[in-house]
Design a binder for these strands. Sequence first.
DNA 1: TCCTCTAGCTTGGAC
DNA 2: GTCCAAGGTAGAGGA
Lengths: 245, 245
Amino acid sequence: MRLVIARCAVDYTGRLNAHLPLATRLLVHKGDGSLLVHSDGGSYKPLNWMSPPCTLASEEPGEEEASAGVLEVWRVTHKKTGDALRVQIYEVLHDSNHDLGIDPGLQKDGVEADLQRLLAEQVELVAEGATLVRREFPTAIGPVDLMVRDPDGVAIEVADESATGGARHIAVEVKRKAGIDAVEQLTRYLELLNRDSHLAPVRGVLAAQSIAPQARTLAGDRGIEVLLLDYDAMKGVESGVPTLF
Amino acid sequence: MRLVIARCAVDYTGRLNAHLPLATRLLVHKGDGSLLVHSDGGSYKPLNWMSPPCTLASEEPGEEEASAGVLEVWRVTHKKTGDALRVQIYEVLHDSNHDLGIDPGLQKDGVEADLQRLLAEQVELVAEGATLVRREFPTAIGPVDLMVRDPDGVAIEVADESATGGARHIAVEVKRKAGIDAVEQLTRYLELLNRDSHLAPVRGVLAAQSIAPQARTLAGDRGIEVLLLDYDAMKGVESGVPTLF
DNA sequence: TCCTCTAGCTTGGAC
DNA sequence: GTCCAAGGTAGAGGA
């Protein structure tokens, strides 16, 4: 990894065009050839960058550039898309190389997959007496997170059976944060599943750690039930520390 | 900006939990307090990070940590969310400070806003004789990119007037890349707009530089027309260089 | 402030 | 390869 602090100007051409005026920035040239251009502040995202696979070539500046003070030009080209980054270097304030070795990578806990696994194990949270049919239940337009059988579906919903049709299957969409898009996604699955006479009628449950107000409203309109999940509580149950009911 | 190359292990607790085992990495501590943890390769995204507003505090390692070889612990805490990053530093291989000053920022061309502006100026691409009602046409659930009046709507659509109702208004959703989500978005707008008797019936056009096949299919199902846009050609028209028809 | 939508999204997975 | 969905999405912009 090469670290350079330099006064530079950058032009990107590719999916769009972008220009960075002359200023002092950090250039990180990684072992895989990729380049990051960072300012001191702003964000975790570079101002400009080139992802691997790409190559960096150093060029002499043109005559006009040289007279404007450009010492060197870096041209970073993506090997597949042809996207290109052109860095005009006016002054180098720091330049160092470092051998980092390979990284063992990041270990995560609490992503959607973990939520889904826990809810599959604690499927009674979806409906009393419910049993898991399977996770990642396949459909033509993609897998439904959880498919659940609800033995008491008719009895529970008898007060308004016309709305649910006494559904004994429940399609569950699991999200960490549910937005409108999650409701749309579940709606598409329900449309499709309810065309299958072996399953229909299927009702929908949107299970999430947080649900955007407009998503809740839209779900209500579409007869989709929402279920708030408490990840820590569910994890507590898993680890053998029962919660009180 | 402080640049540190160090052998370190990192733990993040916040919206989820994440752990980075001991390895050599680049730590970038920016002027606004934010911290980026990069490996040599991978992507432009840090392995771990903390966004501003946050504070970095250096601590003595605990006894057990010290005996395991930890020299120093950085604790980076977000001021609002309470998210925290804990960096155990085992060895410092490089440490330097740099004054970068403020950055003039990135100038972009070719983003969705540019597409939208060009299509607003060349609204006849949507339908012959069409006129612009307004950009960012407000609705209760957000702005429609373009609202267009189509004086010939009835005549053009007379062959299947039942489908369009002879719509004289067109809601246009502009995208660089249109996926299923774009169709859903436009569908929501159309549902709402068609409840407004002053506008209804409104038909929908999805205008994009590229359209995913499944989005095209879904749009077809919903009676939404798709329109492929050529950004360079549209820009050519704008700059007074006409294209041939 | 909350909420929505864009992003050179990136990245991973399935087909 | 293409396409879809998740992300500690981040960040901008409007109500």
